[in-house]
């Protein structure tokens, strides 16, 4: 599994919530968005969205920008 461009030791079947937990993020973390394989995963399903072994996960947040 790839999380933010880096391979991550996460068991298949784990959810988006587990990935966030590893990054120290809670389910109510403000200003966070998640995409899996190029699709936005809404916050409401973070704890139920199971990840495939080859999932590409992007975890994004607010950054300073013009």
């Amino acid at each position: 599994m790839i999380v933010n461009g880096q391979s991550a030791e996460i068991q298949p079947g784990q959810t988006v919530a587990s990935v966030l937990d590893r990054l120290g993020l809670s389910l109510d973390a403000r200003g966070v968005a998640v995409a899996v394989d190029g699709e936005v995963v809404p916050r409401a399903v973070w704890s139920s969205f199971a990840l495939d072994a080859d999932a590409r996960v992007e975890v994004l947040t607010a950054m300073q920008g013009g």
């Binding site: 933010n4 990054l23 200003g31 975890v59 994004l60 947040t61 607010a62 920008g65 013009g66």
Partner: peptide, 21 residues
């Protein structure tokens, strides 16, 4: 105010979102 969206950096200091809030 504008904000950008980038990959989260767990080591980042301070929260932009908190400051803007």
């Amino acid at each position: 105010v504008t904000v950008a969206l980038r990959r989260i950096d767990p080591a980042a200091r301070g929260s932009l979102i908190d400051v803007l809030s």
